[in-house]
Design a protein around this nucleic acid. Structure first.
Length: 936
RNA sequence: GCGGGUGUGGUGAAAUUGGUAGACACGCUAGACUUAGGAUCUAGUGCUUCGCGGCAUGGGGGUUCGAGUCCCUUCACCCGCACCA
């Protein structure tokens, strides 16, 4: 009987489904292992061969851990809210829910075909209302919380109200953008709406007028991490700044903990570094400058308070709220013009135009807090409104940007560094200098100067030492339809939250998915989108003038909302009463291994850590980091094909004929190109009309394309569908081939060149159990050699799975099978453990062979074999490698031996004995059971 | 500019962490077999030389009995951040 993977794979996939083989139970007697993939967005294009890479890796580990006796949680679901389904709805009028449902079916079919051991009874979808009910609930919690800096954790807003009632803002240390100070009597005298406005400035989910990244083409705002190089991540559209009333999340409150706790988790160092940079912690001081002839003060942040005496001017961002106030009449029109022109600059222009220095003088002067000097105040767009206070004290001698600005506008530069030449550029080092011209700081170096100046600033109330973060609060509103509705209604313009019993607040039906004619988000098209307090339910908009009916929020939540807590939901996916039960979360606690792409470093992986910490603060979760270990799998890249058209014609030239012409490359679908880069012209012409009349200039009767490695994507015509591979070679071959392609973390182009190697390995394996074409194994005692090969393989494979080196692991299997084949091994005692080892990699063929071996239950439930070190002890080669004054030898052994055995081996070895020349052995060092250094 | 990473045959890659560089696989070459199958098996395959041998882990230098691995320097490529005060 030949290896018929089609029949075998269908058979066992059916068996696993029917028997619920991979269902995890919430049983706290068993050791748990929680292994998770980043759940996919179900796009219309279906899966390509890049998607399963991570799933195959986690599936191998999941199956391995089950063999090792762990209760494994290996779930899967869909991040099913998102833009593509909505764009499709706009174009076709089809409801995003229908499109999503269709796509999910396709994904599931493809996933099932690869034999993954997911526990589908825990499947979740972020767009299903019994899931987003809890996303909304978490939003309500965030709305109902503030951050207490004394306790360094989130607390209920009622605690804050209590504090206000007793002390006002006195002795309050909370994260807020409120600057108003008041006492308890003031608080009591405030109106209801005034109180609410103040509380909004403390809530972790808050509504405020903020400057946002507005993308006109997408018709929505975007978070910072959704913008790449000044354009939108999706679609690459321009982004501009715009003031809007928006929901935000006070993620900044967690900056310090988000940085510090990176220490606790085993994540890739590069990814941690990215998060650190994104949070952008910098230590320095806030300094207040009085303005001549004005009440207001300018507050600046600086990391170099030691250079305060070097300040010769100040610069405000054009968007700073004092710019117009302090501008004198003389300069008003120039400043206004400047502000307008910089507002018009898109984010992209502003970034690409870093080198041009621009700015205008405001006409006003600030007062230096130490020496009373008058310092001119300038407006310049090199100062960003979003960082620090949007104002800087300019120290041209110590900062290159200030230096360039001063040079350009002929502002004096004062040198405060001894023996430093600043005629060409600023002196920016933090070491190797002493201060001069700096009053009480003269002769001090960096560190002592910083300490002294901060003490002074604080004692005189001129400022204080502080830590500033680059991390901005996350905008939470999206002007989209296909997202979680924000469970809030408006009464007198104030947001009032719904309560848990009113959830889920389900998405309303709308006629169309575009913004309304007056610019409101798509939910503005809904006719039934008002909240009736008395009935506690959604009612028709026409009732809004009734006393109990109010308009509901029209914005929806961003894509990252649903993905910020889903890993907790898997622990108890069907719970209707809680987002996750205490019992479940105390058992599963956290993800042991999380696998996904590094592109989520500053988005999902940041927000989810924030929500986890928040829910931990409120006591809903037992741990404040949800993923112990994280691995970024590399991308599988596509191998795009290009044909080259002579400019302005319909003539295409084969790749070696290009030299003499001006041509432009055009992508063609890689299905028309074979592995030697030859184009199937007829096939191309047949399927794509635009080529019917084109001329193809051949070389030696053939037409060749050029190739380029790029991200695999439908729009680049370079996707390879896993279904094709499954059809041709089977899922087991696909799984092993993807793992054999190279190290998991590395990005690599897809190629099918090596796939035959893996496929023939599986066939060889099959033959091992089918000598003479029929299945047979014998119960005789295996040869010593066979036993050695088996035990070697157990050891190597186990180590490799533990360290996720799947490619070398597969090599070991290949070596083993080759060795056993040449040994003509057919003993059950060898073949039974071998197939258990292989089953995580190639589950279908393993199940089949396992059942042929006469076992009734699934191989997935079987215990992992242990290697017998005695079988490995064999001195194949031993040799002294080197000799120096200390007399050191290296001998290769097969395994750790008792010390007496080692001595015997050493003394028995002719060459070693020779070198020892009868000297006494003083010390034997055994490293990793293999290398021995002998000191004599 | 700052931060992180990578560099080994024709190709994907190994190398027990300082100990025989190139395992394993693809490809290629030669051969065997045949029930003609996207088969299987055997041998060879870093470069150089008829061979002995010599040279090889981007380049240069260093430490060491011994370096792909550690240190210094330099080049190339990839990724992330980027007027962050």
């Amino acid at each position: 009987m030949a290896y018929n993977f089609k029949i075998i794979e269908r058979k066992w996939q059916g068996y696993w489904k029917k028997n619920q083989t991979f269902k995890a139970i919430n049983d706290n007697k068993l050791k748990k292992y929680y292994i998770l993939d980043m759940f996919p967005y179900p796009s219309g294009a279906g899966l390509h061969v890049g998607h399963p890479l991570g799933y195959i890796a986690t599936d191998i580990i999941a199956r391995y851990k089950r063999h090792k006796g762990f209760n494994v949680l290996h779930p899967q679901g869909y991040d099913s809210f998102g833009l593509p389904a909505e764009q499709y709805a706009i174009e076709t009028g089809k409801h995003p829910a229908d499109t999503t449902e269709k796509n999910i079916k396709q994904y599931r079919r493809q996933l099932d075909r690869m034999g993954f051991s997911f526990d589908w009874s825990r499947e979740i979808r972020t767009s299903s209302s019994n899931y987003y009910k809890w996303t909304q609930w978490i939003f309500l919690l965030l709305f109902d919380s503030y951050y207490d800096l004394n306790k360094d954790k989130a607390k209920s807003i009622s605690d804050l109200v209590y504090h206000f009632e007793n002390n006002g803002t006195l002795q309050l240390n909370a994260v807020t953008d409120n600057i108003e100070q008041f006492n308890s009597d003031d608080w009591k005298s405030f109106s209801f709406s005034k109180k609410q406005e103040i509380l909004l400035r403390y809530r972790l989910a808050y509504l405020s007028e903020t400057e946002v990244n507005w993308c006109p083409n997408l018709g929505t705002v975007l978070a910072n991490d959704e913008i790449i190089n000044g354009v939108s991540e999706r679609g690459g559209f321009l982004v501009e700044k715009k003031k809007m009333k928006q929901w935000s999340m006070r993620i900044g409150a967690y900056s310090e903990r988000l940085i510090n706790d990176l220490e606790k988790i085993d994540w890739p160092e590069s990814l941690k570094e990215m998060q650190r940079n994104w949070i952008g912690r910098s230590v320095g001081a806030f300094v207040k400058f009085k303005i001549k002839g004005h009440e207001e003060e300018i507050k600046v942040f600086t990391t170099r308070p030691d250079t305060l005496y070097g300040v010769t001017f100040m610069t405000l961002a054009p968007e700073h709220n004092l710019t117009l106030k302090i501008t004198t009449n003389e300069y008003r029109s120039v400043v206004k013009k400047y502000i307008n022109s910089s507002r018009k600059k898109s984010e992209l222009d502003r970034m690409s135009d870093v080198k041009t220095i621009s700015g205008v003088f405001s006409g006003s002067y600030a007062i230096h807090p130490f020496n009373g000097n008058e310092i001119p105040i300038w407006i310049g767009d090199y100062v960003l409104s979003g960082y620090g206070t949007g104002a800087v004290m300019a120290v041209p001698c110590g900062d290159q940007r200030d230096y360039d600005f001063a040079k350009k506008f002929k502002i004096p530069i004062k040198n405060i560094f001894s023996n430093k030449d600043i005629s060409k550029c600023a002196f920016v080092q933090k070491s190797d200098f002493k201060l001069i011209n700096s009053g009480f700081l003269n002769d001090l170096e960096y560190e002592p100067a910083i300490n002294k100046v901060i003490n002074y600033l604080e004692s005189k109330n001129f400022g204080k030492g502080a830590i500033n973060y680059r991390l901005r609060d996350a905008i939470f509103s999206r002007q989209r339809y296909w997202g979680e509705p924000i469970p809030v209604y408006y009464k007198n313009d104030l947001p009032i939250p719904l309560s848990l019993k009113d959830l889920p607040l389900k998405l309303p039906k709308v006629k169309n998915y575009l913004p309304t004619s007056d610019g409101a988000p798509p939910l503005g098209n809904a006719t039934k989108w008002a909240w009736d307090i008395s009935k506690g339910k959604v009612v028709d908009n026409s009732l809004i003038n009734n006393i109990d009916v109010f308009p509901l929020e029209l914005n929806t939540m961003p894509g990252w909302a649903g993905s910020s807590w889903y890993f907790n939901r898997y622990m108890d996916a069907c719970n209707e009463n809680e987002f996750v039960s205490k019992k479940a979360v105390n058992y599963w606690k956290e993800v042991d291994l999380y696998l996904g792409g590094s592109e989520h470093a500053t988005g999902h992986l940041m927000y989810s850590r924030f929500w986890q910490k928040f829910l931990y603060d409120l006591g809903y979760l037992p741990v404040d980091e949800y993923a112990k270990k994280l691995i970024n799998q590399g991308m599988i890249l596509g191998y795009s094909a290009f044909i080259h058209r002579k400019k302005g014609t319909q003539e295409y030239y084969s790749s070696n004929l290009l030299g003499n012409y001006k041509t432009e490359p055009i992508r063609v679908d890689i299905s028309f190109v074979n592995s030697s880069n030859e184009l199937d012209i007829e096939g191309l012409k047949e399927s794509q009309i635009q080529y019917r009349k084109s001329k193809f200039k051949l070389e030696k009767g053939k037409f060749f394309v050029t190739r380029e490695v790029e991200k695999m994507s439908k729009s680049k015509f370079n996707v390879v569908n896993p279904d094709e591979i499954c059809e041709k070679y089977g899922a087991d071959t696909l799984r092993m081939h993807e793992m054999f392609l190279g190290p998991l973390e590395q990005s690599k182009p897809w190629n099918t060149a090596g796939i035959s190697g893996v496929h023939s390995f599986l066939k060889k394996l099959w033959r091992l159990y089918h000598p003479n074409k029929n299945f047979s194994v014998n119960n005789e005692k295996p040869t010593k050699k066979s036993l050695k090969y088996l035990n070697q393989t157990i050891k190597k494979v186990t180590e490799d799975i533990e360290s996720q080196s799947f490619n070398t692991c597969i090599s070991s299997f290949m070596i083993c099978v080759n060795q056993l084949t040449s040994e003509k091994c057919n003993e059950r005692q060898i073949l039974e453990p071998l197939i258990i080892l292989l089953s995580p990699f190639a589950p279908h063929i393993s199940e089949e062979l396992w059942s042929l071996l006469g076992h009734n239950s699934s191989i997935a439930k079987v215990k992992y074999p242990k290697y017998d070190s005695n079988q490995l002890v064999e001195l194949s080669k031993n040799y002294p490698v080197s000799f120096n004054g200390k007399m050191r030898f290296t001998i290769e052994l097969s395994l750790d031996l008792p010390i007496k055995e080692i001595e015997k081996i050493i003394l028995n070895d002719k060459r070693t004995k020779q070198q020892l020349k009868g000297k006494q052995i003083k010390k034997v060092i055994v490293v990793l059971g293999k290398i021995i250094n002998i000191v004599v």
